[in-house]
């Protein structure tokens, strides 16, 4: 269970949901319903310094209508910005992966903006824990 030289303080990090809401409104005008963006994140981070994130937007990628941008944010970090992915029809699919730092247990949000202005969103809580028990 328990740890010498504890480095991670678990529990909810300083959630800055307001900053995330602000950023979403700045991007797409209003906070969309949660649908259309599948976010793949671990339930519990193996290492808060490098948390894998993948997303796939369920939207067409044709010349007429396609996903232009996907903004990823985390509401418990010193700043909510993580990354903004920019796509074109040549991407074939609006999907991507990266790895990020999470300062503690918090929500990760991905907002997609389509070429016609439609907004889609997904979110998931990632837990950062001390760890150390097992069956």
């Amino acid at each position: 269970a328990v740890v010498a030289g504890l480095t991670v303080i678990p529990g909810l990090a300083n959630a800055d949901e307001a900053a995330v809401t602000e950023a979403i409104k700045g991007m797409v005008g209003d906070v969309p319903d949660e649908s259309g963006v599948a976010l793949d994140l671990p339930e519990i981070a193996e290492n808060g310094n490098t948390v894998p994130l993948s997303f796939t937007v369920d939207a067409p990628m044709g010349e007429d209508l396609y996903v232009k941008d996907v903004m990823v944010m985390a509401d418990g970090n010193p700043s909510p910005d993580v990354a903004v992915f920019h796509f074109t029809p040549m991407s074939g699919v609006a999907a991507g992966s990266t790895r990020m730092r999470l300062a503690g247990t918090q929500n990760v949000v991905a907002v997609a903006r389509l070429s016609d202005g439609t907004a889609l969103m997904g979110s998931k809580q990632v837990k950062v824990t001390i760890g150390g028990c097992g069956g």
């Binding site: 993580v82 903004v84 796509f87 040549m90 074939g92 991507g96 992966s97 790895r99």
Partner: peptide, 19 residues
């Protein structure tokens, strides 16, 4: 055809996958 703006929250040795 693809680009990413990265913030300081991206881990060391940045990894990106795309299509």
């Amino acid at each position: 055809f693809f680009s990413v703006d990265l913030a300081p929250a991206i881990s060391a040795n940045p990894y990106l996958s795309f299509n």
